[in-house]
């Protein structure tokens, strides 16, 4: 175990300063150190996407990023997507369209879709399916997830 390293990360608009082990994964930093447990762990091997967060504007699987790599960066997690009782159009879409059952994949799924809508505000069904191909959902069969993203895209265009 090497000496601890200082990281300064801005998460959901708040600055955090911590001393961490160099090997600490970003997902564990977010969950265990900062206490933001909305991002989940489903595989720890970059496959399931449950841990997806935005890192400096790009969706990343935070189980495959070290906390030290995020030093100086800006992170957005599901908790930061909307304030208080407000909902982001994607969150609203998932609710309206029954885009979740157990909800375990949902935060990661929403953030992957968030990146998609940043890049393509009006995606086709195929583009949506491709965009969340790195996010596994075992419950829904994805159809309502596609509907949810379409709902959000419509809403955000208005």
């Amino acid at each position: 175990m090497g000496p601890k390293k200082r990281v300064s990360i801005r998460i959901n608009g708040v600055n955090y300063l911590h001393e961490v082990e160099p090997r600490l994964l970003l997902i564990h930093y977010l969950r265990d150190v900062v206490g933001l447990t909305g991002s989940h762990i489903g595989c720890e091997t970059s496959v399931c996407g449950a841990c997806t967060v935005m890192l400096d504007g790009a969706a990343v699987k935070s189980c495959t990023v070290l906390a030290v790599q995020a030093d100086g960066a800006e992170v957005l997690t599901i908790e930061g997507l909307a304030q208080g009782e407000d909902l982001h159009p994607l969150q609203e879409g998932f609710w309206e369209c029954h885009g979740l059952q157990c909800g375990y994949c949902t935060p990661g799924m929403i953030l992957s879709a968030y990146q998609l809508l940043l890049r393509r505000p009006d995606p086709t069904e195929e583009e949506i399916r491709r965009a969340v191909d790195g996010n596994l959902c075992r419950c829904t069969g994805y159809q309502h997830i596609v509907d949810a993203v379409q709902y959000a895209a419509r809403k955000m265009k208005k």
């Binding site: 909305g38 991002s39 599901i78 935060p107």
Partner: peptide, 9 residues
Amino acid sequence: EDPRLIRGL
């Protein structure tokens, strides 16, 4: 049940 789950809460 959704409002808490879509907020990560």
